[in-house]
Design a binder for these strands. Structure first.
Length: 922
RNA sequence: GCGGAUGUGGCGAAAUUGGUAGACGCAAUAGACUUAGGAUCUAUCGCCGCGAGGCAUGGGGGUUCGAGUCCCUCCAUCCGCACCA
């Protein structure tokens, strides 16, 4: 009987659906385990072989945990809102809902082909009104909340109202705001003031507190996409999607006050199991730094300049100040003779794009003509402006300490500003001394001190003088939360007299209306502004960004059809955190941070009982494409084989990997590929055309996309799954290389032959030999260990070794083969299920318990082994093969030969080197 | 520049805590069975050497009875951040 994977896979995939074997109860007496994949954006090009890598890993783990007796939640869905669908709609006139639906069905077919154990009854789509009703609902929770810094919690806005009415905001000043409130000069006000203000003013002030708020701010505006982008959607000054230029622009936008959560987002990282690289990336993005804010007065002026520094101890080395060119103080302090120069410089800075500024870091700047006063020495300090000081970070102004900061040093050298040495002999004059392992000189009351002590002392002094304080700063900005786009969640917000009011919960979902055109609305507004029914009701015309729906989706899977709540708390209490979250590193600072913040807010508001969504994160590597190259002799239609190309002047072109077998080009297929190649001529080597190769991103334009459907068609889903795992560690990036797949396929055929000889099923009920049981239990242990630590590639190897050994032993005993099928089933579910039933089982192999590992089977009768003392070979002793370390030690210690050589002293260490010898260290 | 990771045969890679380096697989070579191809099976397969043996985990140094693994240093590649004061 042949291993007919096509029939087997079709048969079991259908049986699994018919018997609903993957449906998971929302509550159970069993312990829970939640395995989640980052859900895909259903793009038009479907899956390539790189996408399922993480899905296979999580599927194996989910099945493994199920065998181990857990109630496993392993759902799948689609992140269906987003820009590409809308761009496609603009270009092809197909409504995003239609193209999304079509793409999803392609994805589903491709996923089903691979035999995943998803509970599809829990499928979600972020673009489904039944789903985004709750995205809108959660948005309203955030809108109706503020962040209380005193309790470090998200609280309902009602608690703030009570405070403002009772005591004003003395204890809860308006959060450092980038926005102007008319008529308000200070960040604090009294209860009387508050109670006198009209509704509109109060609402404007409340907006300054809301966790989801609307305001005018500098945003990343992408003209080509016609929308605003979040910081993490901008890469090197261009949009992540499409690579279009992005400029800074002031616009009315919705934001999430994620900065208030910065400390908790940082702290939470210590409680989760993410890779160091991932934690570093998030930590970096949050960018916490501790230092001080210091107020400098300006000579002959009433102006003051606040600076932020992490090194207040170096204040005696402050030789000049630098203010960001956009800083509002610049126009006020500028002196007559410097006006032209400064204005020219400001104009120059404005003319430079974000991108240019990033690419070429030129030293540039201008002197304002004004001087600040040193708070301790009274020394005048020249004030410069330069683009290396960013308006958006800290206070937008710095005290420059050239001897202690590299950029300040270069600036001082470039503009010939005298440098004060505050580090004595350690400072060479050549370059700045950034180290904190120094002693201060030339620094008045700080002389002879190390920076740590000096920092405390300076801050204390400044505080006494009322011109400074310790200050924590973050790089992270509040997250832009609105898009001037159509294909996203509408905001459940209605505008009245310039004030945003939330819709009533009963009006949710606020459904996305159908539109004919996706053109932007007037004045930078989205397409919704073109719909009269929408604007008549004064509904918000922006839509939410892609990350809205994905920020909480892991909760919806727990209770996907609930129409009364986003998730029944009985279920979220049971399932709790995602135990294993699998996905790529590209979401390090976007999705992961946002969803961590939403989780904290929902936790604070009492909707869920945990404040970190993902307990453990596994980042699968990317699979790259292995492109095939052909070489066309310049000016003709002749292609020369790779080995001979050096003799010709050639152009390098991509050939489709699907018409190359190994390295040999299928010439006929190539000729038919494109009309201009039809008459092509070929210069061959050894009668073959050999292609060149290059590793590139897998993508259409390189013609190196391999579709999993093709691989599954040819080798079967089980081979595909095992091969993807066999390729190497899941975390690692690697190229797709079809060469090795035959080996995995051969393994499955060998497995099949263990069960079926020429005459049919040959499995017997005979008792297994100790040798056979040893092979089995060795494998059980190895698979258990390797699967637990996500070492799936070595698991596959262990299965190969096992089958090879059982084949050599001609083992056809049920006692061995049946447990083998159970441990194999997470990796090769179809063939395991088929053989499981062939053995007469009637339930699914998924419900079998994972076989228990018995170490006793690994211990063999005693044999003689050579022994070495301190590396020198001495003699031989009897010892049990594969015994435990304790067993080995007991035997060795009892051995008279060993006692003689160690002169009765207990050895420091006894090492049993697998099956060959014993090493004793005295 | 800063941060993170990686470096082992012709190739993908193994080697829990320092303990037979190269498991497993691909490719290759020889052979068996086949009219042939495919499939399957057997053997060889890091480098040098006829051999005994010697040399090998990016380079150099160190700790140790023993180092791919630990420490120092240099080099290369990949990823992330990038004037963050």
């Amino acid at each position: 009987m042949e291993y007919n994977f096509r029939d087997i896979e079709k048969k079991w995939q259908q049986a699994w659906i018919d018997n609903k074997v993957y449906q998971v109860p929302s509550l159970s007496d069993k312990p829970k385990y939640y395995v989640l994949d980052m859900f895909p954006y259903p793009s038009g090009s479907g899956l390539h072989v790189g996408h399922p890598l993480g899905y296979i890993a999580s599927d194996i783990f989910a099945r493994y945990k199920r065998l181990k007796g857990f109630n496993v939640l392993h759902p799948m869905g689609y992140d269906a809102f987003g820009l590409p669908a809308e761009q496609y709609a603009i270009e092809h006139g197909v409504h995003p809902a239609v193209s999304t639906e079509k793409n999803i069905s392609t994805f589903r077919k491709q996923l089903d082909n691979i035999g995943f154990c998803y509970d599809w009854s829990r499928e979600i789509r972020t673009s489904d009104p039944k789903y985004y009703k709750w995205t809108q609902w959660i948005f309203l929770q955030l809108f109706n909340s503020w962040y209380n810094r005193k309790t470090a919690k998200t609280e309902p806005i009602a608690t703030l109202l009570a405070i403002l009415e009772g005591e004003g905001n003395q204890n809860h000043p308006i959060p450092d705001s980038q926005f102007q409130i008319e008529g308000l000069t200070s960040l604090t006000f009294t209860a009387e003031q508050w109670n006198k203000w009209d509704e509109q003013t109060r609402q404007i002030i409340l907006m300054e507190y809301r966790v989801a708020y609307c305001g005018y701010g500098e945003v990343n505006w992408c003209e080509a996409l016609g929308t605003v982008l979040a910081n993490d959607e901008v890469v090197n000054g261009v949009s992540e999607r499409g690579g279009y230029p992005v400029v800074k622009k002031k616009l009315r936008q919705w934001y999430l006050r994620i900065t208030e959560y910065a400390d908790r987002l940082l702290e939470g990282l210590q409680r989760v199991d993410f890779s160091d690289a991932m934690k570093d990336m998030q930590g970096n993005w949050i960018g916490k730094s501790t230092g001080a804010e210091i107020r400098f007065s300006v000579q002959n002026s009433s102006e003051v300049i606040d600076v932020y520094t992490t090194r207040p101890d170096t204040i005696f080395g402050a030789d000049f100040m630098v203010v960001a060119p956009e800083h509002e103080v610049v126009v006020k302090i500028i002196t007559g003779e410097q006006r032209t120069e400064v204005e020219e410089y400001v104009a120059y800075v404005k003319s430079r794009s974000e991108r240019e500024r990033m690419m070429e870091k030129k030293i540039s700047g201008a002197f304002t003509g004004a001087y600040a006063v040193h708070p301790f020495t009274g020394r005048p300090i020249p004030i410069w402006i330069s683009e290396y000081v960013l308006a958006g970070y800290g206070t937008g102004a710095i005290m420059a300490v050239p001897s202690g900061d590299e950029r300040d040093h270069k600036f001082a050298q470039y503009f010939n500003i005298p440098i004060t040495n505050i580090f004595g002999d350690l400072y060479t004059g050549e370059e700045a001394l950034m180290s904190k392992d120094v002693v201060l000189y030339n620094s008045d009351f700080l002389n002879g001190m190390h920076p740590e002590r000096a920092i405390n002392l300076v801050v204390d002094r400044l505080e006494q003088m009322g011109i400074g304080r310790a200050k924590v700063n973050f790089k992270m900005r509040d997250a832009a939360f609105s898009r001037q786009r159509y294909w996203g969640e509408p905001f459940p917000i209605m505008w009245k007299g310039g004030v945003a009011y939330p819709l009533d919960e009963k009006e949710l979902p606020l459904e996305l209306p159908f539109v004919e055109s996706y053109k932007p609305g007037p004045e930078g507004e989205g397409p919704l502004a073109n719909i009269p029914e929408w604007t008549e009701r004064q509904l918000e015309t922006n839509t939410m960004p892609g990350y809205a729906g994905s920020s909480w989706y892991f909760l919806r899977y727990m209770d996907p059809h609930n129409e009364e709540a986003f998730c029944d708390q009985r279920f979220s209490n049971y399932w709790g955190q995602v135990d294993l979250y699998v996905g790529g590193t590209e979401h390090a600072v976007g999705h992961l941070l946002y969803s961590r913040m939403w989780t904290k807010a929902l936790y604070d508001l009492g909707h869920i009982s945990f404040d970190e969504p993902y307990k453990r994160l596994l980042n699968q590597g990317k699979i790259g494409g292995d492109s095939r190259l052909v070489y066309r002799v310049k000016g003709g239609n002749t292609f020369v084989s790779a080995g001979l190309k050096d003799g010709y002047d050639t152009d390098e072109l991509h050939a489709d990997v699907n018409m190359v077998n190994g390295l040999e080009l299928d010439i006929e297929a190539f000729k038919q590929w494109r009309p201009d190649y039809a008459g092509a001529e070929f210069i061959l080597e050894d009668g073959k055309y050999i292609c060149g190769t290059r590793l590139e991103k897998m993508g259409k334009r390189y013609f190196n996309v391999v579709n999993p459907d093709d691989v599954v068609e040819r080798y079967g889903a089980d081979t595909f799954r095992m091969y993807e795992m066999f390729l190497g560690p899941v975390e690692q990036d690697k190229p797709w290389d079809t060469k090795g797949i035959e080996g995995v396929h051969r393994f499955l055929k060998k497995l099949w032959r263990l069960f079926f000889g020429d005459a049919g099923l040959q499995v017997t009920g005979e008792k297994a030999t100790p040798e056979e049981l040893k092979v089995l239990h060795k494998t059980i242990r190895k698979i258990e260990e390797d699967t637990e630590r996500f070492s799936f590639n070595t698991s596959v190897s262990a299965f190969m070794v096992c089958v090879n050994e059982l084949t050599d032993l001609k083992c056809t005993k049920r006692e061995v083969l049946e447990p083998l099928l159970i441990i194999l089933s997470p990796y090769a579910p179809h063939v395991s299920e088929e053989l499981w039933h062939q053995l007469g089982n009637t339930t699914t192999v998924l419900d079998a318990p994972f076989p228990k590992f018995e170490p006793a089977y690994l211990v063999e009768s005693s044999k003689e082994y050579p022994i070495s003392i301190n590396g020198k070979m001495r003699t031989q002793i009897d010892i049990a093969l594969d015994a435990t370390q304790q067993q080995v030690e007991a035997i060795v210690l009892a051995n008279p030969v060993v006692q003689r050589w160690t002169e009765g002293k207990p050895p420091k260490k006894i090492i049993f080197v697998k099956g060959k010898m014993v090493n004793v260290v005295v």
